[in-house]
Amino acid sequence: MEIEFIAGHNLYWIISLLLLVGLYGMLAKRNLVKKLVGMNIFQTSIILFYIAVASKRNATVPVIDATLGSADPAHYINPLPHTLMLTAIVVSVATTGVGFALLISIFRRYGTLDEDTLLKRMR
């Protein structure tokens, strides 16, 4: 446990805790809107993990600078995870919209969003 290891890995620990917080929200909370909040936190932690893996010390943003040129890839941050996560964010808001549609449909039919009451009324 030297100091370099902690400085290099503390962000991963924070991301793991964030993923656990999102999973806790999805498992333990009884309100369905709270479950969606937990799902958003979960998605953000995964996106954050990809961006953390992509970052590179002593490198700049992935837009080609004329003074640096594109000869040495060590000058630029890895652009591939950025691309994948860019589409993942927009897809995540669209899927959250589908979740909202299901939520409103459930509320119109059963009149509640609490999980236990919902399971009782569905019986």
């Binding site: 290099g8 503390n10 590179k56």
Partner: peptide, 11 residues
């Protein structure tokens, strides 16, 4: 690999 390590496998 450590965060920001320039010698990581994907870099």
């Amino acid at each position: 690999p450590g965060h920001g390590d320039p010698d990581g496998p994907s870099h």
